[in-house]
Structures are given as structure tokens and as C-alpha cells.
Amino acid sequence: MLEALMKIFGKTDKSSQQIAHDRLKVVLIHDRANVSPEVMEHLKNDIIKVISNYMEIDQNEMEISLANDADSVALVANIPVHNMKHGSDKKH
């Protein structure tokens, strides 16, 4: 009954229209850039390796993704830093 009422008044939390819109936005960025999830995973691991030479980062909280801005694609990374490493700690 509640469901029936919700239907009548057209109330739901997130509409499937919105879900489809969000999913398409993401999938098309990858389709257009021709980048597979595996490639993104390799890229992420390489970025971790390089950055870890200079700073301690939170690997679990780190996010990298492709975003599109008008008609170009950007690589967006959000990498929480715990600590800077001192020059002497730098490994080669």
C-alpha cells in the first residue's frame, strides 16, 4: 500500500532516470578515452609507486578517474597525504 501511494505521488529517493544519467556519464568517458578498468588499475598502481618516493599516501582512500570537461578529458586524482618524506628518506 505504501508503495502504491509512493507511486501515485511519484516519490522515490533516486530515480532510475538519474541513475541511468550518472552511469552513462561515467561509462562514456571510458568508452571515449578507450581506457579499460584494467588500464586504470595499472595507472593507479604506477602513480602510487612514484608518489610514495616522496610522501606517505593513503592508498585506500585514493581515487583516480577520468572526467570530461566540455570536449576534453581530464585525469582527476584525489590522493590523501599522511606525511611528507624528508629528502634523505627518498629511495632510488
Binding site: 507511486k7 530515480s15 532510475s16 532516470q17 556519464k25
Partner: peptide
């Protein structure tokens, strides 16, 4: 369906495909 939010509408498709 568009009104109920269960189907994509022209504006959102416009936005997705530019």
C-alpha cells in the same frame, strides 16, 4: 515514464551526448 523519473528525457540525453 519520464514524468515518473523512470526514463531518460531529451534534456538528460542532450547533456550526456553533447
Amino acid at each position: 515514464m519520464v514524468k515518473e523519473g523512470t526514463m531518460l528525457d531529451m534534456t538528460s540525453i542532450d547533456d550526456i551526448l553533447s
